[in-house]
Design a protein around this nucleic acid. Structure first.
Lengths: 165, 165
DNA sequence: TATTGTTATACTCTATAACTATA
DNA sequence: TATAGTTATAGAGTATAACAATA
């Protein structure tokens, strides 16, 4: 009788033991996070720069709103946007309603760059999931979605339009 | 007939739609990663300091091995360990075999600190999963474990003893 | 007065290159 | 010569506090 969770106890290093929900989630997160970071780094983007470009895909927020979206102090956002602007990835435009405020927006270059990273990430996820059947992927997707949505609701956060990054 | 995936299409903000496997995994990762970071920050630990303490729980590596384990340059590890040592969380001991090398180890304070963070993280995961049944948690745990193990095998990495952080 | 954003400052984190001490 | 680790240097990323301009 073939065990589903194969294993080589002594001297072996390959196992398929369940890690337990806590470890499994922690390690899965590091794996996914690391994958995004790696793909971003290949384009000279840090995680925070990538997240900046990510949130700008469907928004043109003020510096203050950006600080909220990224959970950073407004002074940190100044430098973050400075560096992105210097690279030609985003622009600051003075707001028409409030002359104190800016609207930060993606340039065409910035948009192309973040689209590229997101696309490469999608491919990596595909590789990551090769061992799962279609049904299992659906199951994982559904469970993960529910956890994410429940947490977002619990924190009173509006989950952004579905998109990685 | 009650839809399982409830939703308020127009004007609403609460939905339970499936995010799709890519977005679900990305957002779940940000959620879990953010949870660890938040708990760590409450103890004045950065993510990398937390990971440092984490890997030291069952090892006393050299600086070089630490660089490999954390995927950092050795010069980065110098500063990292400096700051942890200054806080009394780790110690450097000259190796008996090679007088050029150190063995880095957790102090009792360091061990207690990382245990505390790991424990608080466990509690947060529990909250995160309140909406799932026992069977669903098992399913999620199993699927996540398989993905993690498969990726580790694919990268030729020995998955560390099961432990978050 | 309150808010938006920047500046000054300080510290963590990171890598590259050059260096010291040991092997 | 080669390896273990540090130092010097430079830059990103972060927060706090003080500031300028506008509301």
């Amino acid at each position: 009788m073939q065990r589903r969770t194969s294993k080589r106890e002594s001297s072996g290093r390959v196992t398929n033991e369940d890690l337990g929900i806590v470890d499994a989630l922690a390690q899965l997160s590091f794996l996914v996070w690391g994958t995004v970071a790696k793909k971003a780094a290949e384009h000279d983007l840090s995680m925070i720069q990538t997240r900046l470009l990510g949130v700008l895909r469907d928004r043109e927020p003020s510096m203050n709103q950006l600080a909220t979206l990224l959970a950073l102090d407004k002074s940190s956002v100044t430098g973050l946007v400075d560096r992105a602007e210097r690279r030609g990835l985003v622009t600051r435009t003075v707001s028409t309603e409030d002359r104190r405020a800016f609207r930060v927006a993606l340039t065409d270059n910035g948009r192309a760059l973040v689209a590229g990273v997101a696309d490469e990430f999608r491919k990596e996820v595909d590789i990551m999931l090769t061992d799962l059947s279609e049904a299992e992927r659906s199951e994982l997707s559904s469970l993960a979605s529910r956890v994410v949505r429940a947490s977002a609701a619990r924190m009173g956060v509006d989950l952004p339009a579905a998109q990685p990054l």
